[in-house]
Design a protein around this nucleic acid. Structure first.
Lengths: 138, 138
DNA sequence: GTTCTTGCAAAATATTTGCAAGACG
DNA sequence: CGTCTTGCAAATATTTTGCAAGAAC
C-alpha cells in the first residue's frame, strides 16, 4: 500500500498523519495476525514504546484498529475492516493459538446476534476462541 | 453451603481440601460475579497473594473454576457449573460492564456452534460482551 | 521423612503517565 | 505563540517464581 492510501486511511478517521503513525499503520496493514505493543516495538525498533502505545490508543479511539485480549497477557491489535466502526454489528471472532501464541481475526465468520438479558446494553465484544491453528496442527 | 459439600466439590476434582482452599471456594461460591485475585485478596485479607494465586491456578487446572479475560487488565475467575469441564461444549458468554467493571457469567445463554476454519482445533473460548449492565443502566 | 501447601519477598512482565524537547502550523 | 507529537524516564499494576518453614500423611 502506498503512502497516499495510508494517509487517506488516517485522515478518514480524523487522525493527523505523522511519519510515526504512517509507519505503525503500514506495519499493521502488513500483518495477517494481531500484534502486541512489543511486536511493534521490536519491528520498528527505533520507535519509543510510549509513542507506540499512544499511537495505538489513538488508532483505537478513532476506530481504525481494535484491540483483542486473548489471554496471552498482552493486548493485541488489528486493523478494522474498511467500513467497520467496531460496533456490535461489526463483530467477528478471533482465534488464539495456544502453541504459537498467534491471534488471528476470523473476519469471514460473523458473530450471530446475541440475546442478552433485559436491561443490559451491548456496546462491543471480545470474542476469542482458543485452540491450535492449522499451521501448528500438522 | 456447608463445609462437607465444599469438600466434596474439591475432592470430585482431585483437589486436596485444605482450609485455605475451602475458604477460597466458599468465597467464589457466594459471588454472583466473576472476581479477580485482588478481590479475593481484599476479602480474605489474612491470605497471601501468592497462595491465592496458586489456589486459583490449581482450581482452574482441575476445572473447578474458569478464568475470564475481560479487558479490565485483571483476570477474573468464576465457578464452573456442576458438570462443566470447560470444553468447547460448555461455553457461555460473559458480560463486562464498563461502568461498574463487574463481569457476570451469562450461563443461561449458550454459545452457538462456531464453524471455525479447516485445520483449526477449538479447545476453549473467552467470550466477553462489553457494555452497561442492567444495574448501571438506570 | 517425603510430599504438598503456605507465606514472605522479590522478580518479571505490561501498561500507563509526567515532563520537557521538538515539530507543525 | 499555541497545540500536538515524540522520547526518555519512571511509576503503576499485575502476574509469577524462589525459597524456606510448616502441615499433612
Amino acid at each position: 500500500m502506498n503512502d497516499t492510501k495510508l494517509e487517506n486511511k488516517l485522515e478518514k478517521r480524523d487522525i493527523k498523519p505523522t511519519a510515526m503513525r504512517l509507519l505503525v499503520l503500514q506495519f499493521l496493514t502488513e500483518q495477517i495476525k494481531a500484534v502486541s505493543l512489543s511486536d511493534i516495538e521490536n519491528s520498528l525498533y527505533y520507535a519509543d514504546r510510549s509513542t507506540l502505545f499512544r499511537t495505538l490508543k489513538t488508532f483505537e479511539k478513532n476506530k481504525l484498529i481494535h484491540s483483542i485480549e486473548d489471554g496471552s497477557g498482552q493486548v493485541k491489535y488489528a486493523i478494522c475492516l474498511e467500513e467497520c466502526d467496531c460496533s456490535a454489528q461489526d463483530l467477528h471472532y478471533h482465534f488464539h493459538c495456544t502453541k504459537c501464541t498467534n491471534t488471528f481475526c476470523l473476519t469471514s465468520l460473523s458473530v450471530p446476534a446475541i440475546d442478552i438479558p433485559k436491561g443490559f446494553v451491548m456496546q462491543q465484544a471480545n470474542m476469542v476462541i482458543k485452540g491450535v491453528c492449522a499451521n501448528c496442527n500438522q
